[in-house]
Computed example of a mutant assay.
Amino acid sequence: MAVIELIFPKIKNDPESIKGAQETIPIAFKVLKEGGVLRGVAGAIISENGKDTTGEFREFISLEWPELSYFYKFVESPGYAEYKAAATPFASGPPDLNVFETNPGAHLFAGRPLLDILLIKPKNPSDEEAQTILKKVQSTLEKLNDTEAVYGSSLNLPQKKIAIVKAIADKAELDAAKNATARQEILKEIGDLAEVTQLVADVKVMPF
Rank of each mutant, 00 (worst) to 15 (best):
K84N: 12
D14W: 09
F74I: 10
P78R: 09
G152S: 06
S62C: 12
V165F: 07
S154D: 06
E173R: 07
S77F: 04
F71A: 01
G40L: 04
I168R: 03
K84F: 13
A180E: 03
K204H: 12
A87C: 13
K33H: 07
D192P: 04
E59P: 10
Q22V: 09
P89K: 13
E23P: 10
F29C: 03
K51A: 10
L114W: 05
L199A: 04
E101Q: 15
E64K: 12
E59I: 05
R183N: 08
L115I: 05
K136A: 08
P158V: 05
K143S: 13
L174F: 05
F90V: 02
V37Y: 01
K204D: 07
F74D: 00
I46W: 07
A149V: 07
P78K: 08
Q198N: 08
T53M: 14
A194Q: 10
E82S: 06
L32K: 03
K10T: 08
H107A: 15
L97H: 09
P207H: 14
E16G: 08
V200S: 00
Y70L: 06
P89R: 11
W65C: 05
F100L: 03
E48D: 15
Q22F: 11
D175L: 12
K136F: 02
V200W: 00
L97T: 05
K161Q: 05
I61S: 02
L97F: 11
I168K: 00
D170S: 14
E34K: 10
S69N: 11
A28I: 09
Q131K: 11
K204A: 08
R112I: 13
I164K: 02
Q198R: 13
A106S: 11
I164E: 01
I45M: 01
L97Q: 08
V37C: 03
P26E: 05
A44G: 14
K123E: 14
L118R: 05
E128F: 11
P26H: 11
V37W: 00
E16H: 14
E64S: 13
E82L: 04
G152H: 02
R39C: 15
I27K: 07
F100T: 00
K161E: 01
A28F: 11
T197I: 12
A87E: 07
I18W: 02
